[in-house]
Design a protein around this nucleic acid. Structure first.
Length: 260
DNA sequence: CCATCATGGATAT
DNA sequence: TATCCCTGATGGC
C-alpha cells in the first residue's frame, strides 16, 4: 500500500476528519509514548510529502512513516486498541489506530525543514516542476531503475510505480539516469503527474487504461491494474516478465519491450 | 502451526 | 552491501 499516493490520500482523509477538532492522542503500545504530550490539542493540518505524513499542531508535529508494514485502521465506535497500536487518534465520532510504522514521533520545525530539504520533488506537490525533476535526475550516477526509488531524487515513487513507469516509457532499467533524454524525463514526469492523482482518488495503483477493459478504474481486478508488476507475461509482447534485484528491491520488467 | 513474503528505509560496515 | 526493524496476510504442512 504505502507509496506516495497512499500517504497523500491519508493526509486528505485525516485532514477532513480531524482538522480543527481537539483530539485524544495516545500510544497504547508505548513505543512512541511522547505523542501523548499533544493529547487534547486541535489538529491544525494533516499533509504528506513523498511517503511521509505530517500532522501539524501548534507547537509540534507528529511525523509518520509507514515503512513496509505500517497501517491505519478506522473505527466508528469505541473499541479497545490491539496491543500493537502505536498511535491512536480519537475524535468525537472516529478512532484511528496506527500499527507497524517505522516512525510516529514528535518533531520540531527544524526536523520538518530538514525532511523537505532531503527529499526530491514530489509529483503530487503542485509547486514541484519538471525542471526540478530533470535537474535532480541528471545529478544521479545510478541506473534509472535505482534512481526512481531514491527519495532524494524524486519523492513518493515505490516499487510498484517504479516498475510501471519504466514500462510505460519502455525504458531499460539499467540505463544511467543522467543519460536519459529530455523527452524521456518529460514522459516520466508527466506519467507521474497523471497517475499519482489517480492513485490518490482511487486509493489504488492503476497504470493501465480502464477503458481497455470496458470498466471504470475502481472495478479493475488487481492484475488488470498494472502492466508488469508481479505479472507473469508481458501484456504487449507476451514475453516472460523478468524479476531481478535493482536498488535493493525486486524489479519486474519486460526485456523485450524495455530497450530504450 | 510455521515459514514466507510484502508497495520502505535507517544504520552499520 | 549487509543487517535490522516493524506487522499481518497467506499458504503449505
Amino acid at each position: 500500500m504505502p507509496e506516495g499516493h497512499t500517504l497523500h490520500r491519508l493526509a486528505r482523509d485525516h485532514h477532513a476528519w480531524f482538522a480543527e477538532h481537539p483530539l485524544r492522542m495516545s500510544s497504547p503500545q508505548g513505543r512512541f509514548a511522547e505523542v501523548a504530550e499533544l493529547d487534547g490539542q486541535p489538529l491544525i493540518a494533516a499533509r504528506a510529502i513523498g511517503k511521509h505524513l505530517l500532522y501539524e499542531f501548534k507547537d509540534a508535529w507528529i511525523h509518520v512513516h509507514l515503512g513496509l508494514f505500517g497501517k491505519f485502521r478506522v473505527w466508528r465506535s469505541a473499541r479497545e486498541p490491539r496491543p500493537t497500536v502505536r498511535l491512536r487518534i480519537e475524535a468525537a465520532d472516529r478512532i484511528l489506530d496506527l500499527t507497524g510504522p517505522t516512525d510516529c514521533s514528535l518533531w520540531g520545525d527544524d526536523q520538518v525543514e530538514a525532511l523537505r530539504e532531503r527529499l526530491g520533488p514530489d509529483p503530487l506537490d503542485p509547486e514541484a516542476t519538471l525542471h526540478d525533476f530533470v535537474t535532480s535526475m541528471r545529478r544521479r550516477r545510478k541506473a534509472i531503475g535505482a534512481a526512481l526509488l531514491d527519495q532524494k531524487a524524486v519523492a513518493g515513487v515505490g516499487n510498484v510505480y517504479r516498475a510501471e513507469l519504466l514500462f510505460l516509457s519502455r525504458l531499460d532499467p539499467r540505463k544511467p539516469s543522467r543519460d536519459l533524454t529530455d523527452d524521456q524525463l518529460e514522459r516520466l514526469w508527466s506519467d507521474m503527474r497523471r497517475l499519482f492523482p489517480l492513485g490518490v482518488r482511487t486509493n489504488r495503483i492503476i497504470t493501465t487504461e480502464a477503458k481497455d477493459f470496458g470498466k471504470s478504474p475502481s472495478k479493475l481486478r488487481r492484475d488488470e491494474r498494472v502492466w508488469v508488476y508481479k505479472q507473469a507475461s508481458c501484456r504487449v509482447c507476451g514475453e516472460a516478465i523478468e524479476r531481478e534485484e535493482l536498488g535493493a528491491r525486486t524489479l519486474y520488467w519486460c526485456p523485450s519491450c524495455q530497450t530504450s
